[in-house]
Design a binder for these strands. Sequence first.
RNA 1: GGAGGUGUGGGUGAGUGGUUGAAAUCACCAGUUUCGAAAACUGGCAUACCCGAAAGGGUAUCGGAGGUUCGAAUCCUCCCACCUCCGCCA
Length: 422
Amino acid sequence: MLDIKFIRENSDLVKEAARKKHLSFDVVKLLEVDKERLTLMTEIEQMRAKQNQVSVEITKTQDQNAKMVLIYDMKLVKEEMQKKDEVLAKIMKSWRELMLAVPNIPDMSVPEGGSDKENVEVRSWGQPRQFTFEPKSHIDLMIKNDLVDFDRGIKVGGFRGYILKNEGARMSMAVWQFVMDELTPKGFTPMIVPSLVRKEAFLGTGYLPQGEEDLYKTQDGTYLSGTAEVGTMAYYMDEVLKKEELPKKMISFNTCYRREAGSHGKDTKGLYRVHEFNKVEQVVLCEASHEQSVKLHEELTVNAEVLLQALKLPYHVVLNCGGDLGLGQVKKYDIEAWIPSENRYGETHSSSYFHDFQTRRLNIRYKDQIDGKLRFAHSLNNTALATPRLLISIVENYQNEDGTITVPEVLRKYVGKDLISR
RNA sequence: GGAGGUGUGGGUGAGUGGUUGAAAUCACCAGUUUCGAAAACUGGCAUACCCGAAAGGGUAUCGGAGGUUCGAAUCCUCCCACCUCCGCCA
């Protein structure tokens, strides 16, 4: 959500943001509704002021007749006010809906483009391995080594189901441990947050109302989150933080659920696109400064890169174009790790910042000691590591000609062996 | 699942229909005092929106949403959270 005052004064920026993000949003309509809202609010407030004033008079009036006259007058005022209130309620509903749909302003550096095809590579690390044999896909490799069972996964869990086994399970847990060990010394607080989360948190982070169809909803009105960002951001919902404690850095683990509603035919085989997976997410709240946001955004991105470098997985970083940005995102990098069997990079990380878009919705503020004012914090997040998707890159890049898989050096102490062979 | 209770400002907590945005107190901030500090004393101390150049004025907010009333923290309905007891269960 943006400040309505900002929108009033910068409607051209909002209009431009919608264009760049390829969203249809009618800012003129919002401003019209806003004007109606203000006019009506002023009228109602004036009537209420009158009512409050007469209310005091009524208590002071000793003469019963005079009192009855005042009460009768106020009865009329009340009726008129009720009519106006009804109209205002309708206007407010429409105003709120529009406000929730206002896109955040993308950064100047965000390239033009409609979809991920137009994202721009900003750097790459490592050389894709030159195989002396035809590399197998993660599906073949993992089935051969009994690291995954898709048939029973589907029997148990339905479409896109999978069950990790043996070192498939061990390697998943290994990377979670590895990430926690790497990032905790960098000032991140490790957390395990709920996946089952209340609606407010989804509205606050911007996943609702627009993304309803991508979420699993329970009969209790709660939703299953597709990222720990939701539960972690909601941790500080409606709170006032101290400026000294910023930035707050967290790495949260949880199980993520995604309906993948818009991608039924896509990536139906393997572990690339699944309904249920596990992820460690970096989430940061910082003071309301663009410079801080930018600095931390780069930092979060590099944190993830360092992890991939430690795993010796080739990757590149792409700057997402306008059309590939979410409603609230100002700027986003995707990190994509190399997938040998497909001869392409596949998205494993997504790093973005939001300015106060989320914190305004979630009401997360801090007190600035200098001027004593309350300000909405800025928020950012980036994947640290997601499994099983990252296992694709690991097993494919570390495969040997005989179908065995070498365990990445940094994971050996967690997995308990150097080579997966079965 | 059943029965009962509670929800007031940063904390504790008073307030059961009328100048109550809300007593008191603690915390906090500023000042007086002091070499400095403590203590004491004095003063200040909510947020959002609207009007206004400002000073200032107005409206709303006592878990949330509705309702009754000229008027609601106070009465009614629904919802949420927490607590206690019983039942059930890991």
